[in-house]
Design a protein around this nucleic acid. Structure first.
Length: 257
DNA sequence: ATGTCGCTCGAGGAGCGA
């Protein structure tokens, strides 16, 4: 089973890259963020023509999340709390004995801003919901754009980013609160150390200078840990013309689906 | 280092969010 997450930054603009990537990589489950389309405009048929089914929750201009999965699979949507209703940032499905949760955590703008407070509230609501909805025995994959670089090793220049948005103490604490529910950062299970990034700012020639952060994550619960084989960042997609500012993260498992 | 993208509104480019 191959599971991946990618912030596409507009599915309409990124459709050619998405199509090529699905054809080449053949992931079983894909979590997309920042689709930026209302449900009525989601490119459902183009996705179906590639052998995938899509479930999505979008809005105009901003946010929007979607799951793509191989057509043969039959997932059920899991209801999320009304707290998450106003901005389309979360979608969850049940697929056989697995639960997949796709999140697009608020960016937070700058530390101390109203948007920053909203980010912290959103993360706190996520922890509450996870805690009360799932048990220790649940087989969970929680993935998406967390907009948090968990540690200094996930940042190209920790001094520059110290206490800044995506790296502040409270954001990192919120990430740890999620981990403490019983999740493992799949990337770090496989790559104990080493700097690797999933997002590079469009500004400042970020990608060419490798000024990046690792803010997109695939977290797995304990039961899935043993079967995790490989986790890679598809950096090649960030190097294309008209790229998303994020690269996909891809996790391969030896079992399931 | 306020730099680049993608969006909306609405008909050209300003303003917002990331």
């Amino acid at each position: 089973m191959k599971v991946s997450t990618w912030n596409v930054n507009s599915i309409r603009v990124r459709m050619p890259h998405l199509v090529d990537w699905l054809r080449e990589d053949l992931p079983d489950v894909v979590a997309l963020q920042e689709t930026k389309v209302e449900d009525i405009s989601f490119p459902k048929e183009d996705i179906e023509n590639l052998g995938y089914t899509a479930v999505f929750s979008g809005q105009k201009s901003y946010n929007g999340v979607a799951f793509l999965f191989q057509k043969t699979n039959k997932p059920e949507l899991i209801k999320t709390p009304s707290f998450f209703d106003s901005q389309k940032r979360i979608i969850a499905i049940n697929l056989e004995d697995l639960v997949f949760i796709n999140i697009y955590v608020p960016n937070g703008s700058s530390v101390g801003s109203e948007k920053y407070e909203y980010k912290l509230q959103w993360l706190s609501a996520l922890v509450d919901w996870l805690k009360k909805t799932f048990s220790k025995n649940s087989k969970l994959v929680l993935m998406g754009d967390f907009n948090i670089a968990p540690n200094d090793i996930d940042v190209h220049d920790p001094e520059v980013w110290k206490d800044k948005i995506l790296c502040s103490i409270l954001e990192r604490q919120a990430f740890k609160d999620i981990i403490d529910l019983g999740f493992y950062d799949a990337y770090r299970l496989v790559h104990k150390d080493g700097r690797a990034f999933t997002w590079w700012d469009y500004r400042l020639n970020g990608f060419r200078r490798n000024f990046g952060l690792r803010i997109d994550h695939i977290l797995v619960s304990d039961q899935l840990r043993e079967s995790l084989v490989k986790v890679e960042i598809a950096k090649n997609l960030r190097a294309l013309d008209r790229p998303s500012d994020h690269a996909p993260v891809v996790a391969s498992f030896s079992t399931y689906l």
